[in-house]
């Protein structure tokens, strides 16, 4: 499948470090969009600030690179402005759950038909390796030189608690699974949330794992397991992958359009 057809090659080379997982996620997203047969003109990709948020610039869709944490707020305006467009929002872990945490929970609460993808590498990469809300306890960062004492968010639990009607998790090691989840998430009528565990060899890996990017990625095979797998009972530390929530619930933009139609009938 020609991934290049969806790239703005004029702006290459991209700025991600060698071994970064973000390119893998971008490739899976492109394959999902190809699989869904979406027209390029019907796709809007909205991002915030950070390494992950540079993705839209490379993609040949309508692309909006906004402010740190605010991608979902901009995306809400886009979706309300033209509900027929597919709105996809790639974010980083800090972008989505620290500065943008409020917008995340409210987009989930409204159940607006937007697909949020959180590329979780447990660190702020663009600014040089500071702790994020998903940095594990005891992990080192430039702002936690002796080890992090802040408890981490479980983003899947956060999205579930806020009412997202589609919640899933995958990793860069499981690219086909990730692609399938993107397909389901984009198809889902309502707010869909996909967390992708990804590797930051430059900042997180160097301080904490001391292994090659490939080794970091391969670790996702052993540190995660599918939902419902017996492995989880043996080792409760394993992180579950799969679709956690897939519900039908009233979607925000379409129910607003319905209200407009009702008001017009009454007049």
């Amino acid at each position: 499948m020609p991934v290049k057809r969806y790239l703005r090659q004029r702006f290459f080379p991209q700025l991600w470090c060698a071994g970064c997982g973000h390119g893998q996620i971008m490739a899976s997203l492109i394959r999902a969009i190809e699989e869904l047969g979406l027209q390029k003109n019907n796709v809007v990709v909205v991002s915030g600030i950070g390494c992950s948020s540079r993705m839209p610039g490379y993609l040949d869709f309508h692309t909006l690179h906004t402010l740190h944490g605010r991608a979902l707020a901009f995306a809400t305006g886009v979706k309300m402005g033209r509900p027929e467009l597919n709105v996809i929002v790639p974010m980083g872990d800090g972008d989505a759950s620290a500065i943008g945490g409020n917008h995340l929970i409210h987009a989930a609460r409204r159940n607006i038909n937007i697909t949020a993808i959180v590329m979780n590498n447990n660190i702020y990469g663009m600014t040089g390796g500071q702790s994020s809300p998903t940095t594990p306890v005891a992990a080192k960062s430039t702002t936690a030189p002796l080890g992090n004492i802040d408890p981490a968010f479980d983003l899947v639990e956060l999205a579930k608690g806020a009412g997202a009607s589609f919640v899933a998790r995958s990793t860069t090691y499981h690219s086909k699974e990730m692609q399938n989840m993107f397909v389901k998430a984009i198809n889902h009528k309502g707010f869909s949330f996909v967390e992708v565990l990804t590797q930051c060899p430059t900042y997180y890996g160097r301080k904490n794992e001391g292994v090659s990017p490939t080794e970091m990625m391969k670790k996702f095979a052993t540190t995660t397991t599918s939902i419902g797998s017996p492995k989880k009972k043996e080792n409760p530390e394993l992180i579950e992958r799969g679709v956690f929530v897939d519900q039908e619930r009233t979607e925000y933009a379409s129910s607003y359009c319905e209200m407009i139609n009702q008001m017009r009938k009454q007049k």
Partner: peptide, 23 residues
Amino acid sequence: KFIQMEDEIASMCAIIGAALTGQ
């Protein structure tokens, strides 16, 4: 369309997003 956002930051961002769709 009218939307009550979660704060003023989000309100300002949302009107920019909607403006880009032609509104």
